[in-house]
Design a protein around this nucleic acid. Structure first.
Lengths: 346, 346
DNA sequence: CTGAAAGCGCTTACAG
DNA sequence: CTGAAAGCGCTTACAG
C-alpha cells in the first residue's frame, strides 16, 4: 500500500468508468441533464473508491464557499454558545458550514480572525465585537470584500451592516424598575466597558428608571467594570466600603459579576435579598441554582442565532442586483427573569 | 463603483507593477531569492490595493490547508472549551487555523462534521466522540484520507490514532477513596453512558475503591445516566426513593449531574455534606460557588489542549517517511478538588 | 533574481 | 445527454 497515496479525484472515477470529468461532476452534483443510469453508475463507483469532493477546488471554482464565519469574544459564555447553536440549527438544514472563532476579548485577535475568514472566502461573517479597541477598519474590510457582514449584540453603530441587537436599554430599565418596586432605594450599577454600545445602553436604562422614579443618582454608586473577572472583586469591595453602601446591585455586565457580588455578600454576612438585592444579566445556567437563585435577564440567544441565519438567507434569496451589501437592524427584546435574589417583602 | 467588483489577485498587482505573478507570489510569501526592493514594492502595492490572499487557491495548490478541525460534543462545556483554548494557544503561534464543530452528542451530526472536515482538506482532525453510536468508520475514513487523527478524552480504543486521555479510573478511585475517608459508606454511583470508555473507566475506579475498602457493592446504588440533563432528575429520584438510600453520591458523568443532586437534596431538606456527600466531575466554573461548593475533579483541559496541539506539531516535524499515520497514547492525570460538599467531621 | 508554463481539482459555458 | 476546453487564484519546478 502506497504511503503517498493520492486522494481519488473525479478524473480517477471518469477513467474507471470511461467517461469524462464533466459527466462525473454533473452526476455527483445530481443536477443538469444526466442519464439516470450514468448517474447511478458514477455514484456507485464514487462510493466504491471512497471518493471525497475537494471543497477547496469546488469553492475556488464557484467563487463561494457555502461557509459562514462566526467571531465571538468567548464560545463558552452561555449567550454566545446559544447564539451559535441557533445559527447552526438553520445552517445545518441548508448545508452551510460554520467556522467558529473566538477573539478572547482581544481586539488584535479579533482582527486576525476576521482577516483569516476573509482569506477563506466565507460568504458571510457574523460578529459580536470584543470589548477592547475602537478601530473598526477590519469590519469595513469585510464589506469591501463583498462579504455579507452581520453584527449582533455588541454592534458598532457606525459600521453599516445587518445588525441583530437586544434592546438593552429597555431591559435594564425594566430590571431597575423591578428593584425599585421591591423597595430598594440605593441601587448601585456595575456597568460593562463603556466603549461598547450595549453597556452604554444598559447604563442609560438604569438612569432612566431612577429618574422616572425620582431617585437621586449617586455617582459613587456607578462603577464601570472591564471584562476581566479578576478585577471584579476590587470593584465590589469599593461599593461595600462606601459610608452609605447600596441596598441593591445591578451587575449589568453579566451574571459572573453578579455571582461575585453574591459571594462577597456571603463573606460579609449580608442577607440576600433581605439586606441586599442582586440582579445579573444574561441568564447563565448557574443563576437558576445558586442560593439564593439570581434574578437576571434572558437574551434569547438561540432565537437570536436563528434570526441571524434566517436574515442572511432571506437576504441571499431576495437579493436584487441593485443593493450592494444589505444593512438593516433587527431588535429583540430580552426578558427579565425574577428570582429569589431580588424578591423581598417590600 | 462596481457592484460586481472582483477581488484583487496577484495578477492585478503584477500588472500594476509590470511584473509577473510569480514574482508577486514570491514577494508576498517573503521567501526565495527576491530582490529586496522588488519585495517592498510588491508589499506596498498589495496593501494599497487592499489585496487579500485567496486561501482556497493556495491551499489547493499546496495540497495542505494549515487548518486543524476540532469536533466536540458541546463547545460550551467547561472541559471542552478549555481544551479548545489550549489548542488555540499553540496553533495561534504557528499560524494555523481552527475549524470548530459541535456534534451536540449526536452520532449522525458527528459523522457529518467529520466528513465536512475531510472535504475541506484539513491537515488534522481532533475529536472527542459523542455519547451515541458505536460505528466508527468515519474515524477510519479520516486516516484513510491521510489526515492525522487525534482522539482525546472520549477515545475509541479500537481506532488507532494519536490519543490524549485522562486517567479516569485513577481519578475516580481517588474521589471514592476520599468519600470513604470522610466516613460515607453507602456511596451511590451515577455513571455516564457505558458505551464510552471514559465512563466505564470511571465506574471501574469506583468499584476498585469500594473493594479495596471492603465495602459491599450494592447494585441498586449504581445507575447509568445518559447525556441528556433532563433525564437526570428521574435517576436521582430513584436513588432517594430506595428503602436504604445512599449517604453519598458520586455524579461521575459531570458536574451538571452533581448540581441536580444538590438541588434535589435541597428540596428534600437533606443537609450537604452532613447527611449527604456529593462529588461531581470536571470542575465546571459554578462548582466553586454553589452553596455548599461542590467537590469535583479537574481534568486540566487547557493543558490537554496544549498537549494535543504540541503532539501534532511534533509528529509533523519528526515525521519520517516510513510511518504512515502516527499512533500513540498520552495520558494526563486529573486532580481531585476537595470542597465543602464532601467535608464533614467524620 | 525574474519569467513562462504547468497544474492543484473542480465547474460550466459552449458544442454537438 | 455527453465531451472538450477554459479558468477559478495560486505555487513551484524549470529555465535563463
Amino acid at each position: 500500500m502506497d504511503l503517498k497515496k493520492k486522494r481519488v479525484t473525479i478524473y480517477d472515477i471518469a477513467r474507471a468508468l470511461n467517461l469524462t470529468a464533466s459527466t462525473v461532476s454533473r452526476s455527483l452534483n445530481n443536477n443538469s441533464r444526466i442519464n439516470e443510469d450514468t448517474r447511478k453508475l458514477v455514484i456507485a463507483k464514487a462510493r466504491e473508491m471512497n471518493y471525497r469532493a475537494n471543497s477547496l477546488a469546488s469553492n475556488l471554482r464557484k467563487g463561494k464557499s457555502q461557509t459562514i464565519g462566526i467571531v465571538v469574544p468567548r464560545i463558552n459564555q452561555n449567550f454566545f454558545s446559544n447564539v451559535i447553536a441557533g445559527i447552526e440549527s438553520i445552517t445545518n438544514e441548508k448545508n452551510y458550514n460554520l467556522i467558529i472563532c473566538q477573539s478572547n476579548e482581544s481586539h488584535e485577535k479579533e482582527i486576525k480572525c476576521v482577516n483569516t475568514l476573509i482569506n477563506q472566502h466565507v460568504d458571510c461573517i457574523v460578529i459580536s465585537v470584543s470589548a477592547e479597541g475602537d478601530d473598526y477598519t477590519h469590519l469595513q474590510n469585510v464589506i469591501d470584500h463583498q462579504i455579507q457582514l452581520i453584527q449582533f449584540d455588541r454592534v458598532v453603530e457606525k459600521i453599516e451592516s445587518l445588525k441583530v441587537t437586544n434592546n438593552n436599554e429597555e431591559a435594564s430599565r425594566e430590571a431597575v424598575e423591578h428593584l425599585i418596586a421591591s423597595g430598594y432605594r440605593r441601587i448601585a450599577l456595575l456597568a460593562g466597558p463603556q466603549n461598547l454600545d450595549i453597556f452604554r445602553d444598559r447604563k442609560a436604562g438604569y438612569l432612566k428608571a431612577l429618574r422616572a422614579n425620582k431617585i437621586t443618582i449617586a455617582d459613587e454608586l456607578i462603577l464601570d467594570a472591564d471584562t476581566n473577572n479578576e478585577h471584579d472583586a476590587e470593584l465590589i469591595r469599593r461599593l461595600f466600603a462606601l459610608p452609605n453602601p447600596p441596598d441593591a446591585i445591578f451587575a449589568s455586565r453579566d451574571d459572573f459579576l453578579a455571582l461575585g457580588v453574591l459571594e462577597a455578600a456571603n463573606d460579609l454576612n449580608l442577607k440576600v435579598p433581605e439586606q441586599l438585592g442582586i440582579c445579573g444579566y444574561s441568564n447563565e445556567r448557574f443563576t437558576r441554582i445558586t442560593s439564593p437563585s439570581i434574578t437576571t435577564i434572558d437574551q434569547f440567544g438561540v432565537d437570536m442565532g436563528k434570526t441571524i441565519a434566517q436574515t442572511y438567507f432571506d437576504e441571499l434569496d431576495g437579493k436584487d442586483e441593485e443593493t450592494a451589501v444589505a444593512t438593516k437592524t433587527i431588535s429583540i427584546k430580552p426578558k427579565l427573569i425574577v428570582r429569589s435574589s431580588t424578591q423581598r417583602g417590600k
